[in-house]
């Protein structure tokens, strides 16, 4: 297969970067090699006996490979491996640690919608969707993947800089007894208790309560 002499330095830091279960393999080029290095990638399901080549990531010069499709089943765990080639020389196969999509993915912040009345604001939160293979595929909310998912919400009264914190399991929250004609800013985070995962906070969404009639 054209692999002559495997003394090329190895690809480094081979690891999965996963967001909402979009699972992309990343690595760094072998030390001291300039341009011209090509790579190939294979992966395996933990507990199953064979490595599977990824044709779309054969003889590529980039240092990432999207394996979301191959690691779609989050009830399985995976390994992936990369080999480098340059001028007829090659490196060893360099593997990831065992990748568990369920516990090793990062979660985006929730979408936040805020509306107001005179003395209250209503907050509607939407959890991100799990990565899907095609736009036509039915969407799966991360809420379905992580039944214990809940939201941490911060509400800031801009005028006084007073902040309240809430933790809710359902996706709506009404904050009553507020001051009319006043700006409030809302930011929210997702928290999963087991496995222990949390998103960053969303950006702030500000709304003003209606003025007194």
């Amino acid at each position: 297969s054209g692999e002559l002499y495997c003394s090329l330095p190895n690809p480094r830091n081979v690891h999965f970067e996963s967001i909402n279960m979009k699972n992309v393999l990343h690595w760094s080029a072998p030390e001291g090699t300039g341009d011209g290095v090509l790579y190939k990638v294979k992966y395996s399901v933990y507990g199953v006996g064979k490595w599977i080549r990824k044709p779309e990531c054969r003889n590529i010069n980039r240092t990432w490979c999207d394996l979301s499709n191959e690691t779609f089943d989050y009830e399985e765990q995976y390994y992936a491996s990369v080999k480098a080639f340059l001028n007829g020389m090659c490196s060893d196969w360099m593997e990831t640690t065992r990748f568990n999509p369920l516990t090793d993915t990062k979660i985006d912040p929730p979408m936040v919608n805020v509306s107001s009345t005179e003395k209250s604001i209503s907050i509607l939160l939407t959890a991100p969707e799990k990565w899907k293979r095609s736009p036509e595929e039915e969407s799966v909310s991360l809420l379905q993947v992580y039944p214990g998912l809940q939201y941490n919400i911060s509400v800031l009264k801009k005028k006084t800089k007073k902040r309240w914190w809430f933790s809710v399991s359902n996706n709506t929250l009404v904050v009553p007894w507020l001051e009319p004609g006043t700006a409030y800013c809302v930011s929210a985070q997702i928290q999963v208790t087991t496995p222990l995962l949390h998103s960053g906070f969303s950006k702030e969404y500000c709304v003003a309560t209606l003025k007194d009639k």
Partner: peptide
Amino acid sequence: FTAIKANIQARDPIRTLSILSH
């Protein structure tokens, strides 16, 4: 387990067998 997962899994070189999942 999360604190020792990488350490323990690195001590298991056998990719082709599983106790619980296959």
